[in-house]
Design a binder for these strands. Structure first.
Lengths: 198, 198, 198, 198
DNA sequence: CATGAATGAGAGTTCATTCAT
DNA sequence: GATGAATGAACTCTCATTCAT
């Protein structure tokens, strides 16, 4: 049967899943535990999600969708390419800084899923990577970045650095100020890409 | 009950584990499947490893240990900091390029393990990160890199970029030439870190 | 809480149940599927039936009740014992021939129920078996059948043969002409029972 | 993985399944209950059977296979067609009379399974029906039975009668002497089929 | 009368680990 | 040392039934 994809319980279940996974880890997050956290019966989850995998993908889609939307919004207000990249990094760090649970889930726990699920998660990330690409292209276009940059490599450098930094922050129990790293990270990246005609 | 950590079967079992995990994925790699691939009985595995987790950690330790040793060896032959960093990147890409199975296991499959196991894997990586750190420090020391670099950030930038690039290569079924990316990746990184006194 | 046993929806639900069970099989005939087929809400079914078992029994009672009434009616018009038995067989075959869905449900699907339910179904069949018995007794009485017949055995022979023939017809997807078998079946039965004083 | 289809536990599990199903009914015969009855762990059942359905089919195949083999053996010792048919009926009644549990399982419980499983059970029965057919053909051939008999109908008459009689005996809690019915049932059947050239 | 969202008990199956041989 | 048969805990999902609206 088809499932309802909205309603207050839909949100409540997703939030409960984030909480439970952050607290107990992916492999210890049984449906019954999530249901209890959400204050619903086990069966109720199946009124809103096809199965457990569907819940996890929905979780990622909802949370990352909002994450990406907000980031895009903010970037559009920036004029220069440098500010756009800075905003990208800042927004990434900010949004995960204010939601430690979500950070744990996206950086650590959801990566423990099987290949199939990770592929679907990858699709959600596509929009994010396209956003990164658009900034890179604009930078090249405006001669702020070197003309012969390999987009793919630059994208992996930006994303790899941000991701590794965030993961490191999460694994250190959020002990340092992640947001404060946005500026120096940005500097190093820009520095690497910058066009310096001699 | 302590276990034997050497002997021909020890190696055989680890290699079998790599093969099975690369082929079937982490969650489809049961002890019995690994035993069959290794040509031993299920119980025999427990003569050499405390349990399944111990086998996986040993696998990572053995394989990454050799990986790091070889990398350190090669770097010692390099004079300049630039060449050392280049060698680090090249060795990383080369060693995974010649062993697709290992690449799949370290980049994709072993990340599906639980927090506890990943923490132990992290310890193995410490030596690698210390190697990276030593290069960075040398670069700063020799005024090749900016004096005020945040070591931690630079380390995450280097490792994050290399890791993300490799993962991307694995997820694209090793379709592009990973080794060829060493030079451009190196250029961008060095470019970012370089000291440019005005 | 007592239920209503009449009204247009009562019939509609029973017919929906026959259709759904014939199409999807007993174990794939959930209340919600029957409700959808009947064009009512799940809960509505519980206004007309105590529970699912009650619905199935009611289904059998309604359908078989009419089946038996019609058969009795027709038999009353027959004079000879031979014709009465022939009519019994013909009516059985005819009524199931014109309603393939009902045939599937009574011959195959409703037999997958538990002992308790089948016992109740057995009670509905009692009237049918009494009808058979009355024909046998009349046959003996009129010296058409052997005087020392074991009623029980003869009843089981008649019912077993008719039932097995019908089931075989259903399992062969109604591919042969069931009604055409009435005459030869009747001949063999009568032949077996006939009184032949030497 | 493939399963072992022999060994003492194989037999023990099948016998336990018969006992449990006879006692608690098909739908109340969980794997754990069967395992307990067999004195093995739940998982052990899966060393010998692919899944629950496989266990049920194996049960039927083993028990009915032996049933049919014994019946064929016994029939081969009979000279006349009449005696062969009598032996068929007697053996059927005898073998179920001495094993009340098996009778309950084959007559009542195993019929509650889904269509798919019943189809596989049907295949096992094929040999039995072929045996019946061979007797019928021999009877016609030797001019003991009428020359124009419809084999299919006769087969259904024989099987339907035997089956209905047995089921009736089981549903009456084995209260009457089933074996004693073999003779009169046989008489009625033979009587029905006999060739009487005028 | 009718609805349909919510409930929650219940069971087949997998697989890491043990231990008698 | 090596074997592999046996163990048994653990979890997702279905669906008959209820009851507030």
């Amino acid at each position: 049967m088809t499932v309802k994809r909205k309603g207050p319980k839909y949100e409540k279940i997703i939030d409960a899943a984030v909480t439970v996974i952050a607290k107990h880890g992916y492999h210890q997050s049984q449906i019954s535990k999530i249901a209890r956290e959400a204050g619903v019966a086990d069966g109720t989850i199946y009124l809103y999600f096809k199965n457990k995998e569907d819940l996890l993908i929905s979780l990622f889609r909802e949370k990352m969708g909002r994450f990406i939307d907000t980031t895009i919004d903010e970037i559009e207000h920036q004029k220069s390419v440098e500010d756009k990249l800075l905003t990208l990094i800042e927004m990434h760090f900010k949004q995960l800084s204010v939601d430690h649970e979500l950070a744990i889930v996206t950086q650590l726990e959801l990566r423990q899923t099987n290949r199939e699920l990770r592929a679907k998660i990858g699709e959600v990330l596509k929009r994010y990577l396209e956003l990164v690409d658009s900034i890179i292209l604009e930078g090249i276009d405006q001669k702020v970045f070197q003309p012969n940059l390999d987009i793919r490599i630059v994208r992996q450098m930006i994303f790899g650095t941000i991701d590794e930094t965030t993961t490191s922050w999460v694994m250190n129990d959020h002990r340092f100020d992640l947001i404060a790293l946005a500026k120096p990270v940005h500097d190093l990246l820009i520095n690497g890409f910058r066009y310096r005609p001699s």
